[in-house]
Simulated assay, not measured.
Amino acid sequence: MKIRTIVTWFTLFFVSLTIAVSCTPATDVSTSESPSTTAVQMGFSAWPGWFPWQIAEEEQLFAANDVKVDLKWFDGYLDSINALAAGQLDANTQTLNDTISSVAAGSDQVIVLVNDNSTGNDKIIVREEINDIKDLQGKTVAVEAGTVDHFLLLLGLEKAGLSPDDVEIKPLETGAASAAFVAGQVDAVGVFAPFTTKALERPGSKELFSSKDFPGAIPDHLVVSRQMLEERPEAVQALVNTWFDTLDFMNENSDKSLQILAKRAGVTVDEYKDYDAGTTIFSIEDNLAAFEPGDDMTSLPYAAQEISTFLVENGLIEQAPDLDKLLDDRFVKAYAEKQKT
Rank of each mutant, 00 (worst) to 15 (best):
D28S: 15
F44G: 03
D329H: 07
N65F: 06
G175E: 02
V112S: 08
F74P: 00
F151W: 14
I284H: 06
A265E: 12
Y275T: 07
V40N: 00
V69L: 00
R264T: 13
F151K: 10
V143D: 09
L162W: 05
G216W: 11
P194C: 10
F291H: 03
A180N: 07
V148I: 12
S22T: 15
E271A: 12
Q94H: 13
E285F: 12
T5N: 12
T37E: 13
R226P: 02
Q137W: 03
S16R: 14
K256Q: 06
R226Q: 14
E33G: 04
F10K: 11
Q137P: 02
V167I: 15
R232P: 01
F310Q: 00
V236L: 07
T11M: 14
E129T: 09
K2D: 08
E337T: 11
S257H: 13
F13A: 15
F282C: 11
K139F: 09
T38V: 05
D295R: 04
G87V: 11
I125T: 08
W47C: 14
F13Q: 13
T147A: 10
D79L: 14
D98V: 05
A238W: 01
K212A: 11
D70L: 00
N97D: 11
I317M: 00
G294F: 08
E252N: 13
V114H: 04
L153Q: 02
D296M: 02
T11G: 13
P48C: 09
L162R: 03
L12K: 14
K338E: 12
G146N: 12
T268Y: 04
A142N: 04
K338T: 06
Q54F: 02
R202S: 11
